[in-house]
Design a protein around this nucleic acid. Sequence first.
DNA 1: GCAAGGTAGGAGGTCTTACCACCTTCAACC
DNA 2: GGTTGAAGGTGGTAAGACCTCCTACCTTGC
Lengths: 233, 233
Amino acid sequence: MNITALQRPVSLVEGVCQQLAELIRGTTSLEERWLPAERSLAEQLGVSRTVVREATKRLEQQGMLEIQHGTGIKVVNKLHRPLCDSLSLLIPDVGARLQQLNETRLSIEPDAAAFAAERATKEHIRTLRGVHEQLESSPDNAAAIEADIAMHHAIADASGNLIYRLLLDSLAEIGLASRLRTIGRIGKQTAIEHHAQILEAIERGSAAAAREAMRTHILAAGEDMDLASLKAI
Amino acid sequence: MNITALQRPVSLVEGVCQQLAELIRGTTSLEERWLPAERSLAEQLGVSRTVVREATKRLEQQGMLEIQHGTGIKVVNKLHRPLCDSLSLLIPDVGARLQQLNETRLSIEPDAAAFAAERATKEHIRTLRGVHEQLESSPDNAAAIEADIAMHHAIADASGNLIYRLLLDSLAEIGLASRLRTIGRIGKQTAIEHHAQILEAIERGSAAAAREAMRTHILAAGEDMDLASLKAI
DNA sequence: GCAAGGTAGGAGGTCTTACCACCTTCAACC
DNA sequence: GGTTGAAGGTGGTAAGACCTCCTACCTTGC
């Protein structure tokens, strides 16, 4: 294998990145796969292990790989990770982060829900129903939060806009740690009702209703967090 | 210098990253600064050059550094870069990217403008006026686009929400290449008028007017792009 | 037969040294 | 004075050694 055929790789590392990315993209990504060992990759690609390491590190930061010490290099799909890192760097203070996070969600998610109402396929609807059932039957808070996040993810997915999905995945992961401490019994029941209304609006294809239901939901979640942070004082 | 005093750096690279980040943050970032050479850093931090390289590469990807072959390592503030990379990876097709980009901007920017109207300080207003004057007196399209982007950046800044600013910086950079081909004379004149209305609403402190003006502006910009992409066929 | 423990191999993590490619500077030359 | 090219410093790549960590298998004991 040789990299000279590729288009203007400014450096060897870049070339190897391109090859690996192509290798990853070109495979069925349904099951998590493992890459060959660093030394093996270096030999196959005709470069040193140094270059392979820098390339895999880079792809790991981009959320395409996960490097595990002593085990190997796993192919994953977590493209939202870089944004999470950026946000953590940008706003070190957790409180400020949550407040700004909620404002941003309020900008994005109602629109995402509206687009979902307009564009969702039958497959999307089925997924949404499944996730909502999971939310209803979740045994504990941890499971409820997981289902909650999955629901928002599915809505962003149904919106047909990949940017929404990327942003919401990131915002969800950033907000996760705090949610673990805020959702209580009442919060969960409210969340189920809210999500039911959103789901119903999307099924009906009503963009306006979906937007409004999502708006209500996020505003409520925001108040929930405010209470929790007050209680923490 | 020793890293053992730091809180649980899982690996040497991570420790060096933390140290470098602190080193960068702790300096006046007004002027672009240069880091010591890799070899020098390695000696100062008591680690090998390999570790320093991996750490600096990582911080470069996060948009905190820029490594220049043969010259040195520059401290920069481009935290939005990772999101740009993610978006490029996520949506390789430029056309689809622009469409989804516009939808996302339409979700975020009107709200950002509204918050700016509510929260902008005198300093923010002054900056906005300055940028708008730059836009009006821009000699060519390139300068106009630069001022255009600066205007949106300043509005996001005035919104007081760092996430807005991060997102908009990224979206602006992604959309830049296309804008270079779309803005014409008429587009520029329209843009100046739109921005004047937005600015006026923010100065007045009217969130509703700022939101609506921004919405109008982005919708117009979107149509501009549609026309341009049609013409390209 | 099964389970707990140990061990060997292979994976990534780090270090060292050497050399290559690139940029800047400055002095010698035209 | 302007041009050119050599020198020195910078990051880029290579190769090989050794360490830490994880996994899987095998041994040992019940």
